[in-house]
């Protein structure tokens, strides 16, 4: 019994210390406004409020395929990936809420692959990762010690500058995909009922906040098919929303031999450049966004790009 008490006390003190250090390392304004757990869970809360033009919400297809820094460098628009491995639509809904509350983006892209994922299919490894990322936020933010120990922590640019990937994950290996006829004719696959209900909530949330919602299917040879395309198309069109499927006819000219990191499941960096430029071009075509590269308020994005370039070299 004595040992159990000792262990409980040890862990309690440890949690206290970890929480204390986390509070020291995270942006205080965000902790004050959104709370510690929320600030650590949603990386977008590191960004200055109302500075993001567009947000992309989805699963690993998004963080592998869209690099906001490429869009910034080539078009001057601020895009943020709010993506999580094996994201469930219930999580997506929370992401929408956070994005809209903190940033007020004009457009939110939503990866259609999430429409088909059900809780029971979620990989256990991703459940574990979510768990400790949520409750041990310091694991995500620990590198802030460099600034804390050596510089002025009140430097508001710092949080944005450090977050150079803006939700993107750089992976540059290449494993060719071979299932080239993955979009052959197939019967429609219905979006699961529960997910349809969540999707309705997302649509309503966007309408209430005047955010344009675009559903997108990014190139994905492994888990996407023509049946899912039909199901997603039917659902989005029933709400009068725009649906883009980049798997039909390969409009990005993805070379699956060299532009996938894992035999067709996800794009690699080479593929991501193509997809990012597509998003940039699309935003340009809407004529709703201005080029912010020369604006002083967005200096931190230039700094982030410098760091991004360095990280790519590693």
């Amino acid at each position: 019994m004595k040992n159990v008490l000792k262990s409980v006390l040890f862990i309690a003190i440890l949690i206290g210390l970890i929480m204390g250090i986390t509070c020291l390392l995270l942006p205080k304004e965000s902790i004050y406004k959104y709370g510690l757990i929320k600030t650590s869970t949603y990386e977008i809360l590191r960004e200055k409020e109302n500075t993001i033009d567009a947000v992309v919400i989805g699963d690993s297809l998004i963080y592998s395929g869209i690099s906001p820094m490429e869009i910034w460098h080539n078009y001057g628009y601020t895009v943020y990936d709010m993506a999580k491995s094996a994201q469930l639509i219930s999580d997506s809904y929370k992401y929408f809420q956070v994005a809209i509350a903190s940033q007020k983006p004009k457009i939110i892209f939503f990866e259609a692959n999430v429409l088909y994922r059900q809780a029971k299919n979620k990989p256990w490894l991703s459940v574990w990762q979510d768990l400790y990322k949520t409750y041990l936020p310091i694991l995500t933010y620990h590198n802030y010690w460099k600034k804390y120990l050596f510089n002025n922590l009140n430097d508001s640019l710092y949080y944005s500058r450090l977050n150079a990937y803006k939700g993107f994950k750089y992976i540059n290996k290449s494993v060719p995909g071979t299932k080239l006829d993955y979009m052959h004719e197939k019967a429609k696959v219905e979006v699961p009922k529960e997910n349809q209900e969540y999707f309705q909530k997302i649509v309503e949330l966007c309408q209430e906040n005047a955010v344009k919602l675009i559903v997108i299917s990014t190139p994905n040879m492994k888990s996407w098919n023509y049946g899912k395309h039909l199901g997603a198309k039917e659902l989005t069109e029933s709400y009068g929303l725009k649906y883009i499927d980049l798997n039909i006819g390969n409009p990005l000219d993805i070379d699956w031999k060299t532009e996938s990191r894992d035999a067709g499941s996800h794009l690699n960096f080479k593929g991501a450049i193509k997809l990012s430029n597509y998003i940039g071009e699309y935003l340009e075509s809407t004529e709703e966004f201005s080029d912010k590269r020369d604006q002083e308020e967005y200096d931190n994005w230039d700094e982030a790009y410098e760091l991004y370039e360095k990280l790519l070299l590693q």
Binding site: I18, I21, L139, H142, N143, L311
Partner: peptide, 21 residues
Amino acid sequence: RWLCYYALILSIIVFGAYGDG
């Protein structure tokens, strides 16, 4: 004893080379 353990655990968590980059 506990100070030593906490120092070791926290130095791994804070100074560990993991995460972005």
